[in-house]
Amino acid sequence: MRLSELLDRAVVTADGRTLGKVRDVRLVQDGPILAGGTQAALRVDAVIVSRGWRGVRLGYLRGEVRGPWLLRSIFGRLERAAQAIPLRDLVWDDDEPRLRLRSDARAEKR
């Protein structure tokens, strides 16, 4: 499967309330060593969901960009409103375009 198939999909709670869309995906390098390589595999850990502008990957929160003040106040706020939802808390199948939160999941605030 392609990672882009996760991106831009709507995420809804167990009772159907929309949380937003998948804007980015968090990976953690704690998998087994890759075959033919020396580094650990990248595990898909969580999806970053927000209601805001899709292009929010400028680096104001998750990256290190600090200024200018004008842009940080606009985009920092957008990025701050995003939440990380661990993959294990989601269910999806290929027929349903939306990703659904498990009823026992707690939303993790970034």
């Binding site: 991106l7 953690v28 704690d30």
Partner: peptide, 14 residues
């Protein structure tokens, strides 16, 4: 086990 954290959209794609 903790490992390096990467954001696919920010640090890999494009």
């Amino acid at each position: 086990m903790t490992g390096r954290i990467l954001y696919a959209g920010l640090e890999l794609l494009d």
